[in-house]
Amino acid sequence: MVSTGDTAPAFTAPLANGDVEEFDLEESLDEAPLVLAFFPGAFTSVCSHEMNTFQDRLEEFQEAGGSVYGVSVDSPFALNEFRDKLDLTFDLVSDADKDVIEAYDASMDFEALGVHDVAKRAVFVVDGDGTVTYAWVSDDPGVEPDYDEVLEAVHEA
């Protein structure tokens, strides 16, 4: 599992930003600290609440110098619709190939629902050197991160 102090696994993936572009972690380090907020699935209640909370607090993260990105296995087209529906102004990374959740060891199954290989709810803060300065991973998809703790991590990165 990716932990505090580790080098963040590099990746390139589609970026849902109202259009579909490419996101490259290493090329985005100049926007650091980066908040990578992994979530299981667009259009679900807890994920919607989490992304809305990041949106509601986005100015605080930006004032601390941070850039927020949501990450899920949904397609970039679904993520753009999700982004529009929630009026999100930060971008979402599509890990439809599931390479990112595997690299960050943040993959889980919902056996009872027959859903496999979705993102665990997790948050990683990555500094400008590509080092993970904060890592929080939950095995319970109903638990949201401590947003104050994430904000403090951005301040400290």
Rank of each mutant, 00 (worst) to 15 (best):
S72L: 04
V137A: 08
E22D: 14
D74G: 07
P14D: 06
F39V: 10
F124N: 01
V71L: 14
E102K: 08
D140Q: 14
K120N: 06
L29S: 06
L113M: 09
A157Y: 05
E22T: 13
S48D: 01
T131A: 12
C47E: 02
S138F: 10
P40F: 01
F124M: 05
T133K: 10
A106T: 08
E26V: 11
N52K: 12
K98D: 10
E156G: 12
V126T: 09
P9D: 06
F61N: 13
V93P: 02
Y69E: 10
V137Q: 05
Q55A: 13
E152M: 00
H116F: 15
F110Y: 15
A106D: 05
C47T: 00
T53E: 08
F124I: 01
F39A: 12
C47I: 00
V46E: 14
L86M: 15
K120H: 05
L86S: 12
L36N: 06
T4A: 10
V132K: 01
F43R: 11
E63Q: 10
F77R: 13
M1A: 08
I101R: 01
G5H: 03
H155Y: 06
E59Q: 15
P145G: 04
P141E: 09
L34K: 01
A122T: 01
L79F: 07
S75N: 08
V123M: 00
V118S: 03
D99H: 07
R83V: 08
E149T: 15
K120C: 11
Y134H: 11
V143F: 09
D129K: 14
A42D: 09
R83F: 02
E149L: 11
E144P: 15
P145E: 06
S45H: 14
D87N: 09
G128P: 11
A153S: 08
R83N: 06
A78M: 00
V115R: 10
F124H: 01
A157T: 13
M108V: 11
V35G: 08
